[in-house]
């Protein structure tokens, strides 16, 4: 298992090299001069040239890339063109906000999604099953920004129960609306997947065995069926956590959430290459680590996958 984890962590390196190469190429292709972005209009060509030399962007692209990788190995993500601050500190300011929001969304996803899935599988074709089917369909179809704005209007503006945007003092009230918005689509997917895997698991022979032992329905579903049914759902949630952490651009924009999704989005608009590349690298790393965690949980749930060669048959 340890060997497996180390191997997976080492796999991050080639992924990072690939990602930086692609991003570097893309940012290089864009015909925008960072020096012009930084200096005000009307700067002399000498001043521009001077700045380019200082920043090292007058060098060929492969030299720039090599320098970047060398700095990256030391954990330095470079300096933002726009803010003249280190990318590390910008991301350090914004990442925690995104992670907190993502976690809040995942909690909603796990609790509501799995619960709804179980109920609709166990009470197949009942009113509750119908309700889950209809509401998940709606949740998948409704655009995230529209849902976000509707929530803002109804709960923030009309009812005045919850703050409309921003993070405020960081209390839980500020999280509710953006977290619901961010979780909506995934919750629907989790509910549907739980329903279908649960239905499949419930038709297995070992469920009949469990009933034949004299276990109560709650025990059969909560112990014997759920652990089996959750295996694919865990994958879905893990992937989603990775995606939510950086992919919350729409939600963060609608709710004016000071997270990294919005930061990267703004950086793209401002051609702030170091922020875009640095943010993306962290994103990729989080994604890879999330995948690793999913795989480990997977092994804990399903003993047939234990990443080691230990098969005994008697």
């Amino acid at each position: 298992m340890l060997y497996f984890i180390i191997r997976r962590i080492l796999q991050i390196i080639p992924v990072i090299i690939g990602v930086t190469l692609i991003l570097f190429t893309l940012m290089y292709i864009i015909p925008e001069d960072p020096a012009k972005l930084i200096l005000e209009k009307g700067a002399t060509p000498e001043a521009l040239q001077n700045l380019r030399g200082k920043m090292g962007i007058d060098k060929p692209v492969y030299v720039q890339y090599w320098r970047y990788i060398k700095k990256l190995a030391k954990g330095d993500l470079g300096t933002s063109y726009r803010y003249r601050r280190s990318v590390n500190s910008i991301l350090a300011d914004h990442y925690p906000n995104s992670i907190k929001l993502a976690l809040a969304a995942i909690i909603i996803e796990i609790i509501i999604g799995i619960f709804a899935g179980i109920v609709s599988a166990v009470k197949k074709y009942s009113f509750w099953d119908m309700l889950v089917t209809v509401s998940t369909t709606i949740a998948v179809c409704v655009p995230v920004y529209w849902l976000g704005m509707m929530l803002q209007v109804s709960f923030g503006l009309k009812l005045g129960w919850l703050p409309m945007s921003g993070m405020g003092d960081g209390s839980i009230r500020y999280y509710i609306l953006p977290a619901i918005t961010l979780a909506s689509v995934s919750t629907a997917f989790v509910a549907r997947m739980t329903r279908s895997t649960m239905l499949e698991v419930l038709s297995n022979d070992y469920i009949t065995t469990a009933y034949a032992k004299g276990l109560s329905t709650n025990m059969v579903i909560g112990k014997h069926a759920l652990k089996n049914a959750l295996i694919p759902v865990v994958t879905l949630i893990g992937m989603d956590l990775g995606a939510l952490m950086g992919g919350a651009i729409l939600t963060e924009t609608v709710f004016n959430w000071p997270g990294v999704g919005r930061t990267i989005y703004l950086a793209i608009l401002q051609r702030d290459a170091p922020v875009v590349i640095g943010g993306t690298i962290i994103l990729v790393m989080i994604f890879v680590v999330m995948n690793l965690i999913v795989d480990i949980i997977y092994a804990l749930l399903d003993p047939r996958i234990r990443y080691e060669k230990k098969e005994i048959q008697i």
Binding site: N204, D205, Y206, T208, T209, A210, Y211, A212, K213, G214, L215, S216, T217, H224, K227, N228, L301, D302, P303, R304
Partner: peptide, 26 residues
């Protein structure tokens, strides 16, 4: 249901056809 559960696996128990699928794999 409750009384029935007391009988199942206690007074009357059952062995199934396919042992490969009748035990919970996890």
């Amino acid at each position: 249901q409750k009384e029935l559960q007391n009988f199942r696996g206690n007074r009357i128990s059952m062995i199934f056809q396919d042992p490969m699928t009748s035990l919970n794999p996890v």
